[in-house]
Design a protein around this nucleic acid. Sequence first.
DNA 1: GCAAACCGTTGACAAATGTCAACGGTTTTT
DNA 2: AAAAACCGTTGACATTTGTCAACGGTTTGC
Lengths: 193, 193
Amino acid sequence: MYQNLLSYINQHTTMPLTSVEIGLIEAAFQPKKLRKKQYFLQEGDVSKYAGFIVKGAMRQYSVDERGVEHIVHLYIENYWANDRESSIMLTPSKYNIDAWEDTDLLIVTRADMLDLIDKIPALVKMIRSMDERNAIANQRRLSSTISNTAEKRYEEFAENHPQFIQRFPQHLIASFLGITKETLSRIRKQSIK
Amino acid sequence: MYQNLLSYINQHTTMPLTSVEIGLIEAAFQPKKLRKKQYFLQEGDVSKYAGFIVKGAMRQYSVDERGVEHIVHLYIENYWANDRESSIMLTPSKYNIDAWEDTDLLIVTRADMLDLIDKIPALVKMIRSMDERNAIANQRRLSSTISNTAEKRYEEFAENHPQFIQRFPQHLIASFLGITKETLSRIRKQSIK
DNA sequence: GCAAACCGTTGACAAATGTCAACGGTTTTT
DNA sequence: AAAAACCGTTGACATTTGTCAACGGTTTGC
């Protein structure tokens, strides 16, 4: 169960974890299973846990006044599911996070995570490295969203994230890209020609 | 000159800086002046410095195949101007960063910054706090971009960032929002009624 | 095994946004 | 002081994307 998380950590740090450190980590993270469609976080609640996905797939989305869902994140194995704004500022979340497939998580509270970071120097580097990767990914996505047409955004996404294309249905991909499922369907038809 | 930077750092940390630490910081950061329109970073170059804006205003943008500029960031006092992807991965930047007004910067290389972080514990927290704020801001912008109409995006932006509205001309704001200047002009006309 | 829900596609049409050209009023440069 | 560049606006029109309704082919749940 903890294997994925531990190797994820080792990949993002320079020095391997000691067995004492591994013990601390296993004590702080708690296993959690979600069935398909179960909520991990509901709009209006304050995020209590960050979840590392060991196995499964999840999505994060907002729901607008008309009831339309807007997918802001898709998650699979080795991703962290969380609304950082809510968990950092302790404000009610504007998002829902739920399981798209049956999912195994390792969850940790922000307090326990901060505690771990204080005790395990390697984690400081990991957090920074994760934040950097995250900032880069966000920058790319943002840039693509404001600069490219829907067609180009889809092409780029399909090229850079083929795992997501296979794993999630088309209407979720469309929403993630900020377009409707009909538009995506037509774009794909177009580009096959 | 260093006053703004030092109080910025103190605001983002818990313990005040010692005079030794202040000395280290002043040694690592180098003052730099840019005249309006001068480049801080040009597309194709690898980002060498991060720049803290003491006074002035800058913009970061890409240029597409048709020669159209897409503004990805606007910066004013107390912002950091940089293409993190380029400076972290050491890859040629896809962006330009230039001065929109005459600007005073304090610039630092990534190596010197990492060195400072190792020597000054308070900076570790500052970086994390900055990354968190950054992640939250990016999340909000992204969510707004894929979920809202142009009109609502402009309203939100004007409400949350009135300083930018005053400081940058409308066509830059439009590009930042991912729309044309004509569309923004019509949106504003509309909402006055 | 059947009903219900889900998924992608298509057509007809509406709405939002982009494109291009032109204008007048600034501000900046020389 | 004149010329040039910049800025926001407007009109006419094109293009992109959204909306709504319907369909058939899955897959899912009971």
